[in-house]
Simulated scan of single mutants.
Amino acid sequence: MSAPAAENLNVYTSLFQQISDKTRLKILLYLHEEELCVCNLMDLLQVSQPSVSQHLRKLRDAGIIQVRKQGQWKYYRMNMDFPQYSVLLKLINDMPSLKGEIERLKQDERRITCTM
């Protein structure tokens, strides 16, 4: 295998390692629908803030997602400049949408909200 082909294979291996975790995959499915903050993801995933932050850090370090800071809040979104974004998008588009879960979260008036 040539050096460029081996490097390319390593990039895809890294991508598949990141999305092989169920929580990170769900985060990507949510972020495919819209930009969200940590508290939104905590509510959607029903996991702690440290857990969500750890998964977001891994995805951000891999270049798969981006963060935007606004005041005290950080908002996460898919990185459309990620080199394998088109491959990731094909995979995500083949999976069930989680948009309904986001809509239910928006309609839940009992929850504390930072953005919605």
Rank of each mutant, 00 (worst) to 15 (best):
M1D: 11
M1H: 06
S2R: 12
S2D: 15
P4F: 02
P4W: 06
A5G: 09
A6Y: 10
A6G: 07
N8T: 13
N8S: 15
L9M: 12
L9R: 06
N10L: 14
N10W: 07
V11G: 06
V11N: 11
Y12C: 05
T13A: 14
S14P: 04
S14K: 13
F16I: 08
Q17S: 13
Q17L: 11
I19T: 02
D21P: 05
T23G: 02
T23K: 01
L25S: 10
K26S: 15
I27S: 02
I27H: 06
L28V: 03
L28A: 00
L29K: 13
L29N: 10
L31S: 03
L31H: 03
H32Q: 12
E33K: 12
E34P: 05
C37W: 00
C37V: 05
V38H: 01
C39P: 04
N40M: 09
N40L: 03
N40R: 08
N40T: 13
L44R: 00
L45D: 06
L45Q: 08
Q46T: 10
V47G: 00
S48N: 06
S48T: 15
Q49E: 13
Q49V: 11
P50G: 01
P50S: 07
S51H: 07
S51A: 11
V52D: 00
S53G: 10
H55Y: 08
H55K: 11
L56E: 02
L56K: 06
L56R: 03
R57I: 12
K58V: 07
L59C: 05
L59F: 01
R60N: 15
R60S: 14
A62P: 06
A62T: 08
G63Y: 04
G63Q: 03
G63K: 01
I64G: 03
I65G: 03
V67C: 07
V67E: 14
V67W: 00
R68I: 09
K69D: 08
Q70N: 12
Q70H: 12
Q70C: 11
G71P: 00
G71A: 00
Q72S: 10
W73Q: 03
W73F: 11
W73H: 15
K74I: 05
Y75W: 14
Y76P: 03
Y76L: 08
R77I: 05
R77T: 13
M78S: 01
M78K: 01
M80Q: 14
D81Y: 00
P83L: 04
P83I: 11
Q84A: 14
Q84L: 13
Q84W: 09
Y85N: 03
Y85P: 05
S86F: 07
V87F: 02
L88K: 01
K90V: 15
K90E: 13
L91R: 04
L91T: 11
N93P: 04
N93Y: 03
N93M: 05
D94W: 03
D94R: 07
M95Q: 10
M95T: 08
M95N: 01
M95G: 04
M95H: 04
P96A: 12
P96W: 07
P96V: 09
K99F: 12
E101T: 06
E101A: 12
I102W: 00
I102K: 02
R104L: 15
R104Y: 09
K106N: 08
K106M: 10
K106R: 08
Q107T: 12
Q107F: 00
D108L: 08
R110G: 13
R110F: 14
R110N: 13
R111P: 09
R111Y: 02
R111L: 15
I112G: 07
I112E: 08
I112Q: 05
I112W: 07
C114S: 10
M116W: 15
